[in-house]
Design a protein around this nucleic acid. Structure first.
Lengths: 194, 194
DNA sequence: GCATGCCCGGACTTTACGTCCAGGCTGGAC
DNA sequence: GTCCAGCCTGGACGTAAAGTCCGGGCATGC
């Protein structure tokens, strides 16, 4: 069945089978990354998602290290007695589709194309996202962050113009488990350097 | 030559030849609207555009009555003595392209797609865009706006959460050619109504 | 035990937000 | 024309955030 799905979706989708007991990869079809059998699954973030249906999650968005955007769905397969036996994930690389869409909409478009859709539903989501990304990439949770971590996160948030919206500083401070003064202090420090 | 362009661009482009002397249509290939030879050109808006090249204008955006969006280019053809003899316009219907692009980007997209706007890299662009859209749809320029126009624009901006970003009110006021007080006055008025 | 570096909480200044009001302009009724 | 009503304006004003500053506490390393 996994091979079938892989063939159906062409070269831009990978299918991964995880073992929830050991939290490791069982097998990968058409891998998009270097992952292979035996590698850790890093599936812990599934519980934070609401299932769209019983035992079915997604589609949700993932980011690869090289910037490719994936649409992913996951399904938990259970034994007869109800214990999870395997987790099936399908990851679809959206970049070729997006590139094609960009080509189409650029065709005959006015010289000043629609401004970058750098929108965000809710800027506080952006805060969480930036922090979450940093936590995952460094492996240090918010409480265990070093000063450098905080500087990096604040730099990202500042460049994302988060502090142009009202009431942002206290929210960021709370998210970073740090006082408002510290946020301003770190901000002036990194703004001074450039 | 006009027939050639029409054939090249398929069923979604029309080619129109105008006579600048009489300001009337000379001939239309593959008409997208009901216009025909002898109809008024309504070409007066050309002078308001900056030529991208000598005697070549566009591409710029046009709106048809039924909502289709066109990309248009115009060229002024001159006699040997330099007097304009004909104006050539090519109008390309972008809706099929946009529909195709929408299909592509919807494929495998996260279920919660383009979350409503709140935050923008450059939110002032959004201000200009909202105002510009309103101006085009009503035909009244900013200076000739009625009170209702201003209320509508402010409602749109408020719902786009533009006023959640700092320093927004003065910028909006300036864009609407209105005092800061007026902005706040109109805002409280429409917020009171719900 | 001491020094250093960082953070905290709170006091304080500055900036911007939002409200209010007296006066002036405009367009319509008469 | 005059009058009136509605709207806008510019400025004053009070309040709420945005930022700044500092004394003290709590670690870590020596």
């Amino acid at each position: 069945m996994c091979r079938a799905v892989t063939l159906l979706l062409g070269p831009y989708a990978e299918v991964v089978l995880h073992d929830p007991a050991t939290d490791r990869v069982l097998e990968v079809w058409n891998p998009l990354t270097a992952r292979g059998p035996g590698d850790p699954s890093a599936l812990g973030d599934l519980d934070r998602l609401d299932p769209t249906d019983r035992d079915v999650y997604g589609p949700y968005e993932k980011l690869l290290a090289d910037g490719r955007r994936l649409s992913s769905v996951s399904a938990v397969l259970r034994d007869d007695d109800g214990t999870p036996s395997v987790v099936l994930c399908v990851n679809l690389d959206r970049t070729p589709l997006e590139r094609a869409a960009a080509v189409l909409s650029a065709f005959g478009a006015p010289t000043t194309p629609p401004p970058e859709p750098l929108f965000e539903a809710d800027w506080s989501q952006r805060v969480d996202h930036v922090i979450g990304t940093h936590v995952r990439s460094t492996g240090r949770s918010v409480d265990r962050m070093t000063r450098q971590d905080r500087l990096a996160v604040l730099r990202a948030l500042d460049e994302a113009r988060v502090f142009a919206v009202r009431r942002a500083a206290p929210v960021v401070a709370q998210a970073l488990r740090v006082s408002r003064s510290t946020v301003y202090g770190l901000l002036t420090e990194l703004r001074a350097k450039g």
